[in-house]
Nucleic acid binder design. Structure first.
Lengths: 196, 196
DNA sequence: AAAAATCCTTCAAACGTTTGTTTGATTCAA
DNA sequence: TTGAATCAAACAAACGTTTGAAGGATTTTT
């Protein structure tokens, strides 16, 4: 631990900084000062600013691979969707920086997008699409549904809620205590819609 | 027009650059070169890089104010929601840069977020919430719906579809020819859900 | 066991670029 | 001849990276 003390201190300090200001909005001096280490340690341990950013992103997107576990479970498709929504909420609550990197890379991609972010997102969406196809073939869902549109619709409902927080914080209560209610509302709309 | 030829050329050149790389990812020399004007024209016409960015953002977010027109129309709430979805799709198709600024400011806010972006987003969400309340009071929707969660869910379905394009372009067909089908699917899910 | 050599880590300082902005001269139409 | 518009040039500041010395622990040699 004492070995790579500076290394882990740099990642810990760089994560909230990159998340808040983006790759180009943060200087190596800023990161080093926040980590309490010399700025040359960035090149020493990571080989440069860009590779430090890549290390942060790799760590941040690792939890997304666990979505694959949902697909392997022995439950009906609708329960898998609810598990996905719950896992997404839990993930964002546990790590408040992930969504920032997620959307920052989608909007202003760095070289990391192709290698780290895009594969991770494609993996999740693919699972949702296949889960929906599975449900369709077992006649659990309406047969006029488009699997891809529907998968993106569900992912959009839950992700957009967190994305919009900085803008709608005064309009909508985003407290974690309401998460259970939010999940139920989203699943209700997804399954039976808003009509009476 | 010949008067502020350089001025409009700067805005036209800066818009796709800022949209693709973010405020900090673009240099004034890059913008000036793309516009074909001297880099000192940025300070001359706008008073600096930051004010040029603000001018771009003001122009980009202006169309969002037209959502208010939907609220004033004399139709039932469900039709207003469909009009909102259609207007959103049309807006993104007409201006492919708006969503970039939208999410870029939500994720890595500049000083413009509080003055331009946040009010614009709040305005749209407020209208959606009020439309939903209106529908609830007329007993058009299920009475156990939360207006804010439901409004964000609808907005999320359509916005997330466009946001995810760079990552899911190979998985999902994002062609404009499918827009009508997409709108139909989203409105179907929103109104009656995915169950048979 | 003592001394010497090697390794990994850290540091202040300096490197050459690039940054956004300002300057003062120049152009050209009114 | 006044004024706005444009230009190349220069400005200080900040950028990411490299450097070479210094520290301290470990290993190797005596």
């Amino acid at each position: 631990m004492a070995d790579n003390d500076a290394r882990s201190a740099l990642i810990a300090a760089a994560t909230p900084l990159f998340a808040a200001k983006g790759f180009n909005g943060v200087s190596v001096r800023e990161v080093a000062a926040a980590a309490g280490v010399n700025l040359s340690m960035i090149s020493y341990y990571f080989g440069g600013k860009e590779k430090l950013y890549a290390a942060v992103l790799t760590e941040q997107f690792a939890p997304l691979q666990r979505v694959a576990e949902i697909q392997l479970m022995d439950t009906d498709p609708l329960m898998k969707f609810e598990l996905y929504v719950r896992a997404t909420v839990a993930r964002y609550r546990k790590n408040p920086y992930l969504l920032r990197f997620y959307t920052s890379e989608l909007t202003n991609p760095t070289p990391c997008f192709d290698t780290i972010v895009k594969p991770a997102i494609k993996g999740v969406v693919q699972i949702l699409i296949e889960t929906l196809r599975d449900g369709l073939s077992h006649e659990k869902f309406r047969d006029d549904l488009d699997p891809t549109d529907t998968a993106l619709a569900l992912a959009g409902m839950i992700n957009f809620y967190f994305l919009l927080e900085p803008a709608t914080g005064e309009l909508v209560d985003h407290a974690p205590e309401r998460d259970e209610e939010l999940i139920r509302h989203i699943m209700d709309i997804f399954t039976t819609g808003v009509l009476r």
